[in-house]
Design a protein around this nucleic acid. Structure first.
Lengths: 304, 304
DNA sequence: TAAAAATACTCCATAGGTATTTTAT
DNA sequence: ATAAAATACCTATGGAGTATTTTTA
């Protein structure tokens, strides 16, 4: 059976004339007749009663024509569906973002994204890197914003910006006197870190290990905010990415954020997408928006 | 687009694997791949995201697959519909019957018809010949029981039985003395007839004209039963077909029914059907039942 | 007899097959 | 390195055409 055959049948049923139906379908009368006949043979029932003067629908014929009409309508709906999704900047986009980035980056970029892609529904998922690396390759996410390294062969990662780390120290800490700190300054201090799963934990831990600084035992913060509270309460120092500092220096006055000396340690924020995805262009555009917003909001640059 | 393509798409969506899907569809993998690709091109959207390790549905893909499933289900329903009507002794059969036959014949045959065609829904339409000759060629009826002549080139009429006419005379009428009557006996009597449209009127009128008998002026009965009431009331005599007499002689004792001498005038009851109809066999079978029931019920024969 | 569907046949587009290459993990 | 989809290319089915015949009202 063929959708074309159903068109032919419906045309004959509407026009009650093989010749006119053939014309309406832009085929010759014998072609249409043959296809109708084949359809009847395939279904095993007579659909039409023909003479040279009139064409009559049989009982089954009438019912089959109605079904055909229904099927053809569904096909039209399918085509309509496809048409609605033809615009690559429409539809739904599932975007994962790591928790140490989401609350600080999103306020900066969401309006711009909405403006640039008015027809795109961007659904946000705040997830830790391991979770993202499960969901993104599995197709549950379309793309994700995370920090290098992204170790998954199915994914392609486009760097968006480098985000320098800062030392977060309590107001009364001895380091506050310095304009800048070196990683070695961490040694001897109680360094507080996030719990497992946060890539920021790994990055900060790397920095500590290089200089021999120690993580404080027995505590792992579940979020950057609780971590910051611990620092404010004088329980130690920590390392935070620049965006988390916030543009308003009035916020959380018990903490001072000290830049590192060159070469400034940092993390590279990327947008990751499956190699096989058909939405690379969209990811790229999203990345551009993020990059330009970072540049615009944070002053000049977070080094791109 | 092709229904086969939709099958391929649904198979891939279900199995997440082109090779397995191809196997399930009994085609080669390249064939299936090519068709899916064509479908995507025709719809103008990507339906699937493929790597060598996994096949993912896109957003549109998911929706198109659902539509496809719906369409394929409808096609199955269509096939089911056809299957249900494949039995020629099933479905609905619209049967027209003239009013001077219906009330007398139907009680004799309907049970037998129901028994012979348990899956056939026979819908009865009591209609005068002109009405039948409009509806039957137009396909509103499948067949009809009427009396010759049936003048319509699109129709084929199969004789079922000859139904002799009887003279219906009041109990006290002078003709009652005779065992038989001749058409000439009608002359000089008030002959009551049916109104226009009833073929029985034409047939009786023919008989009168041949011998020079006159129809009574100013009265035309709307049914055989009212006509019979008129005879019983002594307003004249009439001509009735045998089946109308009824098997119970106790019925309407004020009337005597007198047979005609040979050659007995009669009408030929036929079953008519369009030449183009696909249900000749069914009409023939119905005719057979009517014939055999007539023979069984009326004693020996109404001359077949 | 005339209008319309069916038949006969020829042709070509395309679905399908096999062998091979490319791709991505 | 390997599994799987894509590509290349050939084949053959069947949908479409024209010319003609058959049917039937």
């Amino acid at each position: 059976m063929n959708l074309r055959d159903l068109h032919y049948l419906v045309a004959v049923a509407e026009l009650n004339h093989f010749g006119k139906a053939a014309e309406a379908c832009h085929v010759s009368q014998p072609t249409l007749s043959a296809q109708i006949k084949k359809l009847e043979e395939e279904l095993g029932v007579s659909l039409l009663e023909r003479t040279n003067k009139q064409v009559l629908l049989t009982d089954v014929g009438r019912q089959i024509v109605m079904k055909s009409q229904q099927i053809l309508d569904s096909v039209d709906e399918m085509r309509e569906l496809a048409l609605q999704h033809k615009d690559p900047e429409s539809g739904t986009f599932h975007l994962g973002i790591i928790p140490t980035l989401a609350p600080y980056l999103l306020p900066l970029v969401m309006n711009a994204i909405k403006e640039r892609f008015p027809n795109l529904k961007v659904l946000l998922y705040e997830l830790q890197t391991p979770d993202i690396l499960k969901r993104l390759p599995a197709g549950k996410l379309d793309a994700a914003l995370l920090a290098l390294p992204v170790e998954h062969s199915a994914l392609k990662s486009i760097p968006l910006f480098d985000e320098p780390f800062f030392a977060a120290v309590p107001y009364k800490h001895k380091l506050v006197k310095q304009k800048q700190v070196s990683p070695t300054d961490l040694v001897g201090n109680d360094v507080l870190l996030l719990e497992d799963g946060h890539c920021l934990r790994d990055q900060a831990l790397d920095l500590c290990r290089k200089v021999g600084a120690d993580e404080v035992e027995g505590f792992r913060a579940t979020s950057l905010e609780t971590l910051r509270q611990m620092v404010a309460s004088g329980h130690g120092i920590t390392i935070v990415p620049q965006l988390a500092i916030g543009s308003t220096p009035s916020r959380m006055k018990q903490i001072r954020y000290l830049p590192f000396v060159n070469p400034k340690p940092s993390r590279t924020i990327v947008i990751s997408i499956r190699h096989s995805s058909h939405r690379h262009y969209l990811a790229l555009e999203l990345g551009k928006i993020v990059g330009s917003r970072i540049e615009a909001v944070v002053g000049n640059k977070l080094i791109d």
